[in-house]
């Protein structure tokens, strides 16, 4: 390793005390990794017969998927697909509306109160730790099956993501311009709208678009637990073993996700 030798030597000179510790930590990680892998591989339940069977089954699956049931699209897929997009968009919007105040509370320079910062961060972490499918399960339990549950699931899962990034963007706003507004005697809300907002605006839109892109992907599965969207159509087709219709759904998801990604990258390139 020609390039890493030199830094290591510098390491040894300036950080002699820490090098053995670092080494030890690194070897611990390697060892733990290998151990975890070995233990996992030995104890995980895999039925070999199923595995040998897999290529055949896969072939069978693809054979059943082809030809794709294009005719199913207008009647069975289109509405569900549009619903998925609405769930993703509205979910992102609701998330942003809720995430802005929480993100502001999480930024120490905007709200200089440690307890409020920690409380806001706790809310954000809680939101991120629960998968959108779990949020969907919970909201289906509360609101019954349908798009409302899906929209709220997307929204609640996204709060953590959007809020965390908004908070971080706010904390990176240069102190100078904020100080200047404070010196003019501006009220807090005006400093927020005329000092912080212009500074984080590009980051904000970028975060929103990024999350919308992710949400388009995520909202496609929500139907599996009854929370609306194309997942419902997919689930129905799978339950009835109509694999050509499954293929239709998968294809529709594929196209929408790719188009969403292209739209987002284009907007980011042109506008932001």
């Amino acid at each position: 390793m020609s390039t890493t030798l030199v830094p290591d030597r510098i390491d040894a000179k300036t950080w002699t005390r820490f090098t053995p510790g670092q080494r030890f930590a690194r070897y611990t990680v390697y060892f733990a990794l290998v151990l975890a892998l070995v233990v996992s591989a030995r104890s995980v339940e895999i039925i070999p017969e199923f595995l040998w069977d897999a290529p055949e089954q896969m072939q069978d699956l693809f054979k059943r998927m082809w030809p794709i049931a294009w005719a199913h699209y207008p009647g069975g897929v289109h509405d569900a697909l549009v619903e998925t997009l609405h769930i993703a968009s509205l979910g992102t919007l609701f998330a942003v509306i809720m995430a802005i105040p929480i993100g502001i509370c999480a930024a120490n320079n905007v709200v200089p109160s440690k307890p409020i910062n920690y409380l806001a961060k706790l809310v954000l972490v809680a939101s991120r730790s629960v998968n959108s499918l779990v949020w969907a399960l919970l909201f289906v339990g509360v609101f019954g099956p349908g798009a409302l549950a899906g929209t709220l699931a997307i929204a609640f899962r996204s709060i953590g993501f959007v809020g965390k990034l908004i908070g971080e963007a706010l904390e990176e706003v240069p102190r100078g311009s904020i100080e200047a507004l404070q010196a003019t005697g501006s009220p807090w809300l005006s400093i927020l709208s005329k000092g912080y907002w212009p500074a984080v605006e590009p980051a904000f839109w970028s975060i929103v678009l990024f999350r919308w892109d992710i949400n388009v992907r995520e909202s496609a599965v929500l139907g599996l637990v009854g929370a609306g969207g194309i997942g419902l159509a997919l689930n129905a087709a799978i339950d009835l073993f109509q694999w050509d219709r499954v293929a239709m759904c998968l294809f529709a998801i594929f196209v929408v996700v790719i188009v969403a990604e292209i739209v987002v990258t284009q907007i980011r390139k042109r506008v932001l």
């Binding site: 992907r217 995520e218 496609a220 599965v221 599996l224 997919l234 799978i238 594929f254 996700v257």
Partner: peptide, 9 residues
């Protein structure tokens, strides 16, 4: 493109 849960199906 696909959510892991869909791939899992």
């Amino acid at each position: 493109t696909f959510h892991p849960v869909i791939v899992a199906i």
